[in-house]
Amino acid sequence: MRSTVGLVCLGEAGNFGDDLILIAGVSAIASAQDDVKVRYLSFGKPVDWSTISTRLRIPLDPTPIRPGRDLPGSRRNEMSFQGCGAVLFGGGGLLQTSHHPHTPYQWLSFLPRHLPAAPVLAAGLGLGPLSADWRRRLRERGLPFDECYLRDADSVAFAEQQLGWRVKRCRDFVDPAFLAHLGVRARSGRPGRPRSLGVALRRWPGLGVTDTARHIGRVAEAHGVDTVCLFVLEAGAGGPDVTFTEEVCRQLGPRDATVLPYVGVDLLDFADAMAECSVAISMKLHSSALWAAMDVPIYPISYAPKTASFFGQPFDGLKIYDQILEPAVDEDWVPRAAEVVSGWLRRALSGQVPVTRAVLTDGDKLRLQTSRTVVNVYRKLGRSLSAR
């Protein structure tokens, strides 16, 4: 009988880093066992699985699942992966409350709750920031996964000290080995190629358009680049990162500069364009990961613990670095996320992983569904009033 594995992640939502995680997760599942089926969450902006399969030399044909409305009393989310032999959760920053007070519930709601419940592995996952309410809830309920591997030391410390979880470390899904397997290779420095400055920004409180443009200009002058390419990794439908990046680009004056928003079906072309850069200014975690894998010198802009941790720096708020920083190097004992997934799935699909994780009670689920619905209604109403 053909095994099915579910994948809970922010896939096909117009985010370059999350789509790389999706692809890495699907390929790790496929490498664990022959003839395995994959079901994954999709948010409607598909990647080109045929071209990606050709690059990876793995026949990938995963089945997308479109999330529905999780109204009070609904079981739609938890039934999405009911019947799967195992579920992979992550990586990325799924458990955080930066953008919505109930983001952790949004993702945990997809984990099957009723017998026969599949074992769940969290891998390549980052934690936080989490509100006091969610820290208390996750601490009291216990670990919602049967095994948990976090992608950085700060997340591990947070899980152990703030949540009381027993967790392990692994590397991020988007690492040099994965990018090499995907065929993304450095292209700068080849004869006849212009020198280019790659920039990856996001709109963030305290980051001004004028100061950012001046910083880009100083770096461009210091390195004598011919062109500047501003990559928008989370483009959506003309979202805030797009408008912010376009505003910055307009302030670069007569300099040869272009804005390149990410589109899922063009993921490989987008990655290849980033690999052509000679030097980079990087604010996004996975732009830093790609440029680091290409040995591109990086001037970081840090806005969160995860971006500071990537460069081995303490996080003390938004910071624009005016010097090149080397990425932190994982110690040899820290396994790759793909290796963790492959090994765990072989055990899980052969029935060797008992289900011991904490699950939401019916009462908790209904309260969270109701609270989340209320927040969403108020936010929608606020947007509607502000648009008038």
Rank of each mutant, 00 (worst) to 15 (best):
W134Y: 14
Y105Q: 12
G85V: 05
S74D: 15
R151W: 06
P67W: 11
L71V: 12
C84L: 11
F81A: 05
G91C: 09
I58W: 01
C148Y: 07
W107E: 07
G92E: 12
R69H: 03
R75L: 10
L125G: 08
L127E: 09
A118K: 06
L94A: 01
A117D: 11
L95P: 02
L95H: 05
T97G: 06
D70I: 00
G91K: 11
P64A: 14
G92Y: 15
P59H: 12
W134T: 08
L111R: 04
S74R: 12
P112T: 08
P62D: 10
H100C: 01
L111M: 09
H114L: 08
C84P: 08
E78H: 05
R139Q: 10
P129C: 04
A132N: 11
G126R: 10
A86D: 08
R76V: 10
R136G: 02
R151Y: 05
R113D: 07
R69S: 07
S80I: 03
G90V: 05
R75M: 08
S80H: 14
P119H: 10
A132Q: 14
A86Q: 15
A153F: 02
W134M: 06
L60W: 09
R66Q: 12
H102W: 09
F110E: 08
L150H: 08
G68S: 13
D146M: 03
P62I: 11
L108E: 09
I58S: 01
L111D: 07
V87G: 02
Y149H: 09
Q96F: 00
P116N: 09
G91Q: 10
A153W: 03
Q106P: 00
Y149R: 02
S109F: 03
H102K: 00
P104R: 04
P62R: 05
F89E: 14
L88F: 04
H100A: 14
R137Y: 03
W134K: 02
S98R: 13
G83Y: 06
S98W: 00
D61F: 01
Q82K: 09
R139A: 12
F110I: 01
Q96W: 01
P112S: 03
A123C: 13
V156L: 13
P64M: 14
L130A: 01
E147F: 00
L150N: 04
G85S: 11
L111T: 05
I58F: 01
A153N: 02
S98L: 09
G93S: 15
P119I: 02
R66F: 04
W134S: 08
L71H: 04
T103W: 00
A132H: 10
L71Q: 04
T97S: 06
A122G: 15
A153V: 12
S74G: 13
S80N: 12
G92K: 12
D146V: 09
D61H: 11
T97H: 05
R66A: 15
L115H: 09
Q82S: 15
Y105E: 12
D70T: 02
W134A: 06
L143G: 00
